[in-house]
Computed example of a mutant assay.
Amino acid sequence: MIRLAALILTLLAAPVLASDQVTSGAGALLRGLDKVSGQTEDFRVGNGETAEIYGLDVALGDCRYPVENPTGDAFAYLTIWEHGQRQALFDGWMIASSPALSALDHSRYDVWVIRCMTP
């Protein structure tokens, strides 16, 4: 567990080291996938807001991106749980350029970060 945390911190620091400045966007563009129907849909979620994506509730804590590369290296803090449930299925940082690194583990739905909303 400690090794996983160290790996995640190292990878999150990589965009920061590659750029001098990291800033927060107003929200994030997320993509949801229903694995049964194959349907995908994009959702905009503001910082501090919760959106319903298929049968999941997705709360966005913050979306950050390097000033020099706002579309490729975005990372967002998400909390995801099934609608009407209390226990989180996912709670952590999700990276747009490496969605499989820290991914939601759900049998039917998938959610990942596309980019931060920038001015």
Rank of each mutant, 00 (worst) to 15 (best):
A100G: 15
H106V: 02
R44S: 12
E82G: 01
A74N: 11
P99D: 04
W81H: 13
S97L: 02
L11K: 12
Y109Q: 01
H106W: 03
T10H: 12
P99C: 10
Y54N: 02
P119D: 15
I95D: 03
G55K: 00
M94K: 09
L33A: 07
Q39W: 05
A76T: 08
M117V: 08
V36L: 07
Y54V: 00
S102H: 13
C116I: 06
L12F: 02
P66E: 09
A103Q: 08
L60T: 05
M117L: 15
L78A: 05
S37C: 04
D20M: 14
L11R: 10
S102A: 12
P15A: 04
A18S: 12
S102Y: 02
I53A: 04
P15N: 03
L17I: 03
R64E: 12
I114E: 15
L9N: 03
L9G: 08
E82A: 11
P70I: 04
G61I: 04
H83L: 02
L104S: 09
G38E: 06
S98Q: 15
W81N: 02
L12V: 04
P15Q: 01
G72N: 08
A59F: 03
S24D: 06
V58P: 00
I80Y: 00
V36T: 10
R108I: 07
D105T: 08
I8N: 07
L7C: 10
I53N: 10
T23L: 11
D91A: 15
A18Q: 09
I2R: 12
A96S: 15
V16K: 05
V111H: 10
M117H: 06
M1I: 08
V111A: 04
V22D: 00
Q87G: 03
D73W: 07
I114G: 09
V111M: 10
I2A: 11
D62C: 07
L33R: 06
P15I: 06
M1Q: 08
D110P: 01
R64Q: 15
G25F: 07
D42I: 02
T79E: 13
R64N: 09
D20P: 06
Y65D: 00
G72E: 10
Y54F: 15
V111S: 12
A13Y: 14
G27C: 06
L9A: 08
K35Q: 11
V58A: 05
A76C: 14
L30V: 01
L78R: 03
P66D: 06
A14Y: 10
F75C: 06
P99F: 06
T118H: 14
V58N: 00
C63P: 11
I53T: 03
P99E: 08
D105Q: 07
W81R: 15
Y54H: 07
D91F: 08
Y54M: 03
Q39R: 14
R108W: 06
Y65H: 13
L4A: 15
D42R: 11
D91P: 01
A88C: 01
L30H: 01
V36M: 13
L104P: 05
W93R: 02
D110E: 14
E52V: 08
Y77E: 03
E41I: 06
N69F: 13
P119C: 02
G61F: 00
L89D: 05
E41G: 09
Y109G: 02
N69T: 08
L89H: 01
P99L: 03
S102Q: 13
Q85Y: 05
Q85M: 04
L7N: 10
H106C: 07
T50P: 00
D91L: 02
E49G: 00
R3I: 05
L11H: 05
T40Q: 15
A5R: 13
